[in-house]
Amino acid sequence: MRVEVAGTELELMAERAAYWPERATLFVADTHWGKAAAFRANLIPVPGGTTESDLARLTSAILRTSPRRIVLLGDALHSRDGRSEKTFQSLAAWRARHAEIEILLVRGNHDRKAGDPPEGLGIHCVDAPVIEAPFVFQHHPSETPAGYALAGHIHPAVRLRGRGLQRATLPCFHFAPGVATLPAFGSFCGSALIQPGPADRVYAIADDEIVNIWRR
């Protein structure tokens, strides 16, 4: 779904990513790669496969948009314990198939403890903020005079209600007047309910569709 924001356009994708056609850039927040591996490193037997399946979803977003660049809005790796050989092998294999795409990581709170991804992955890592008018790329969703912020961190989800006491909780994109929060990309991550303000726009992800929740 195309939305207008800060004078430009973003394509919101059910893959839990947002595409900026003007700069051929794909935004992804909170991948938390290696989270399940961190559990395993602590001998909690969680099955493998989450990182690979998340990467497959990222590939699907790439195939639909052909981006020149991917911007990771923080929390790329989950924790130091999760820096496993196997996770990095999967990442490297995936990276090799998309070597032509530039990747930029704007560090978040987890990255500071977990460390940057291995250099061989060709991910350029910088501290927030990165200003690229009209946007400011950062991890924490706070307003900034430098521009319209694109952020993650929150893992936003929205609760919907309907006739017949129906209820559903869905991951969402949350656009406030000065800052947008992207859904967490990692599938082995929880979410937090947001309370949208009256001027906000919210787009929920319902399986493979984006649904506009705004002013209905």
Partner: peptide, 21 residues
């Protein structure tokens, strides 16, 4: 009683379209 279980045979997006935040 407000604590309810749910069961659906509808497509999620179709359900959602009739709901609101």
């Amino acid at each position: 009683d407000r604590s309810r279980h749910r069961l659906s045979s509808e497509k999620l997006a179709d359900r959602i379209r009739r709901m609101s935040a």
